[in-house]
């Protein structure tokens, strides 16, 4: 494998990988239609359609919010919006990670029959999850209205925050998708890690509740990506430290992904 990395990492392969990423983004009409189709397909014969997602999230936020507000002895009008925002953004992040592991596997028939940039399947995963996020966001909007949360102008930070999640979601979908196509136990492994990350990331608990062991929060990439969107939703501007961590994650993630995508992109069609 190390030998493959050494011989495969050259300018030609790198250029092809970058060209694949650009060409993929240009097939916007295809991946947006496919993403829309996927969601519509899942809910076509139910009356509420994709809003089932919204409802199930709403029920979860309400139930867990009430329970943990009691356990942690938190005032409800602070805690419930916090949990609602946390769940909504976590849904997007975990969705990108989980679907990302299957980005190429789930399109195996298409990959083997149609030529075209492979990255378009990752853009599809990205698009699908953004649509779901747009539905889930209503849970937060409702909770925010009920409890009178006014994020003010800090809400605008949600734009760079979401952009950060999208840019990172892209490399996650490529890297994990590539590993998932080669090693079929990767989706399961990643699913259990994501489950664990949910509990280790401040979503139902707050970073301030942690005394000592702050490494769990500071070194947790999920936390920083979560916070740059959750913060603005609740009206707090993310700290500079957070932005720096997000930039660091983005650079490292893309560097690793470009290496692997350059070397192994052409093998994906053989693997699926």
């Amino acid at each position: 494998m190390i030998i493959q990395l050494k011989t495969g990492l050259n300018a030609t392969n790198f250029n092809r990988a970058v060209r694949d990423l650009i060409a993929g983004s240009q097939r916007r009409e295809l991946w947006s239609t496919m993403g829309m189709q996927e969601i519509r397909d899942r809910y076509r014969r139910s009356i509420l359609g994709p809003f089932w997602l919204t409802i199930s999230l709403g029920v979860m936020v309400l139930a867990l919010g009430l329970l943990y507000a009691g356990i942690f002895k938190q005032p409800l009008d602070d805690y419930l919006p916090y949990v609602a925002a946390g769940f909504t953004v976590w849904g997007l992040i975990s969705g990108l990670v989980l679907d990302g592991t299957r980005s190429f596997i789930s399109a195996e028939a298409l990959i083997r029959q149609l030529p075209g940039p492979l990255s378009l399947h990752v853009y599809r995963v990205l698009w699908t999850n953004l649509i779901i996020f747009a539905h889930n966001l209503w849970v937060f909007v409702l909770v925010a209205l009920i409890f009178g949360v006014n994020p003010g102008w800090n809400l605008l930070y949600i734009i760079p925050g979401l952009l950060a999640i999208v840019v990172n979601g892209l490399w996650v979908g490529i890297l994990l998708g590539l590993f998932g196509a080669r090693f079929r136990d990767v989706p399961q492994i990643v699913a259990s890690i994501t489950q664990l990350a949910f509990f280790l990331t401040p979503i139902i608990w707050q970073p301030g509740m942690l005394e000592g062991r702050t490494m769990i929060v500071d070194a947790n990439p999920f936390y920083h990506l979560l916070e740059v969107v959750r913060g603005p939703l609740l009206g707090t501007a993310p700290e500079l430290k957070q932005w720096l961590m997000v930039i660091l994650i983005t650079i490292i993630g893309w560097a690793v992904t470009l290496v692997f995508y350059s070397v192994y992109r052409w093998r994906i069609a053989y693997w699926v």
Binding site: Q37, D41, R44, A109, L110, Q113
Partner: peptide, 22 residues
């Protein structure tokens, strides 16, 4: 495979669009 990517739940027109995009 001329039926590749056809969606059973989508209408005929939607499938023309989808298949055409493919």
């Amino acid at each position: 495979d001329i039926s590749l990517g056809m969606e059973m739940e989508a209408t005929g027109y939607d499938n023309i669009l989808l298949r055409g995009l493919y």
